[in-house]
Simulated scan of single mutants.
Amino acid sequence: MTRPYAEVIGDPIAQSKSPAIHNFWLGKLGIDAEYRACHVTGAGLADYLDQRRQDPDWRGCNVTMPHKQAVIPMLYSIEPPADIIGAVNTIYPAFDRLLAGTNTDAAGFIEPLRAELEKQHYFRMARILGTGGAARAIIAALAQEGFTLVLAGRDPAKARALLDELAPSGEHHAIDLAHFADPTDFPFDDREDCLDLVINASPLGMRGQPALAFDWSHAPPGAIAYDIVTDPLETEFLKNARAAGHRTLDGLNMLIGQAALAFEKFFDAAAPRQHDAELRELLTR
């Protein structure tokens, strides 16, 4: 006997925490369905989507590295905000099982910042480290929230092109990631009534990846450090931020937030967020 299922695809995929999140919620809600991880290479992406579209039990998939942009020409429709971001992280069968793609990363990223964003600020600035697929959603989300962006990448020209594409209005800046590696004695002005973020939107600092070189003298007083890496959850980036006196947000914030929106698409039910503390405990064992 078969039952409905959704899954996450990527290359690699073994490290994904998405099955644990979605199956936790399915269990809490008593929904007879499952969520899996499926290793899909770039060469196998089109075949995967064609096969799943024909499977009546398949409710959709989340898309992780490195397929978030590669899937776009394979889909029937691209829904907001994926059309603006230019990256898809959620695919689901729509009318006549034609495949639609959307992006829940942007809303998931913003979710833990919502209380801060409801306040009035004299100025908002975000230093974003990384220019990959996740950065696209973060750039678009923060531009909509009125931030001035400093986007740092190993290729500043790529960073500039991303800003021009995703945040064409505003005084945004593209710089070399190496700029932040060495200490600075820059005298920050009064940051009262300002909101500053420093975001690691790269895989640097992830288990098996090189460390992220960031000296916290580049962060204004009161800045919030936000790392989207989830393995390890307590990255050196966050440890060093806390040691320098900054508030921190770990990668489970974005991961759980974006998953909740996808869960509703897949299973037509709201994720039971009242159990977030228990879920976090499960994911950090």
Rank of each mutant, 00 (worst) to 15 (best):
Ala157Trp: 12
Ala225Gln: 03
Ala213Glu: 12
Asp196Trp: 08
Asp189Leu: 15
Ile199Asn: 03
Asp176Tyr: 05
Asp215Gly: 02
Ser169Met: 09
Ala223Thr: 09
Arg207Trp: 13
Asp193Arg: 14
Met206Lys: 03
His173Cys: 15
Ala159Gln: 04
Trp216Pro: 06
Ser217Asn: 05
Tyr226Gln: 07
Pro187Phe: 12
Arg160His: 14
Cys194Glu: 15
Ser202Met: 06
Asp182Ala: 13
Ile199Val: 04
Ala178Thr: 08
Asp215Glu: 00
Gly205Cys: 00
Phe180Lys: 03
Asp227Gly: 05
Pro203Glu: 06
Pro220Arg: 06
Asp196Met: 12
Leu197Thr: 08
Ala174Asn: 11
His172Ala: 11
Gly205Pro: 02
Ser217Lys: 02
Ala201Asp: 07
Asp196Thr: 11
Gly170Pro: 13
Ala157Cys: 13
Ile175Phe: 08
Leu162Asn: 01
Glu165Val: 10
Ile175Asn: 00
His218Pro: 02
Cys194Gln: 13
Asp227Arg: 03
Ala213Thr: 06
Asp189Gly: 14
Gly208Arg: 13
Pro210His: 12
Arg160Glu: 15
Leu177Tyr: 01
Asp215Asn: 07
Gly208Ile: 05
Asp227Ser: 02
Pro183Val: 09
Leu197His: 05
Ile199Leu: 01
Ser202Glu: 09
Asp182Arg: 14
Asp164Met: 08
Ala201Leu: 02
Ser169Gly: 10
Ala178Trp: 09
Gln209Glu: 15
Val198Gln: 00
Ala178Phe: 07
Glu165Trp: 15
Ser202Gln: 07
Gly222Phe: 07
Gln209Val: 12
Gly170Val: 12
Trp216Met: 02
Leu212His: 00
Pro220Asn: 07
Asp185Tyr: 09
Asp190Trp: 02
Ala178Arg: 04
Gly208Phe: 04
Leu177Thr: 01
Asp185Gly: 14
Phe214Ala: 02
His172Ser: 10
Gly208Gln: 09
Ala223Glu: 03
Leu177Lys: 01
Pro221Arg: 01
Asp190Pro: 08
Ala161Gly: 12
Glu171Ser: 14
Asp176Gln: 09
Leu163Ile: 11
Ala181Val: 00
Ala167Trp: 01
Ser202Cys: 11
Gly208Val: 07
Pro220Ala: 11
Cys194Arg: 13
His173Gly: 11
Ala178Glu: 14
Ala211Arg: 12
Asp193Asn: 15
Leu162Ala: 08
Asp164Thr: 15
Leu204Pro: 02
Ala167Asp: 09
Arg207Gly: 14
Gly222Tyr: 01
Asp176His: 12
Ala223Phe: 03
Leu197Ile: 00
Asp227Leu: 05
Cys194Ala: 12
Asp190Phe: 06
Gly205Lys: 00
Gly205Thr: 05
Cys194Lys: 10
Ala178Ile: 05
Met206Asp: 03
Ala174Thr: 04
Pro168Asn: 06
His172Gly: 06
Gly222Ala: 07
Pro203Val: 02
His218Asp: 04
Tyr226Ile: 00
Leu162Gln: 10
Asp215Tyr: 00
Tyr226Val: 04
Arg160Ala: 15
Pro168Arg: 11
Trp216Leu: 03
Pro203Ile: 04
Ile199Cys: 03
Pro203Met: 03
His218Phe: 01
Leu197Asp: 02
Ser217Cys: 05
Phe188His: 10
Gly170Tyr: 13
Arg191Ile: 11
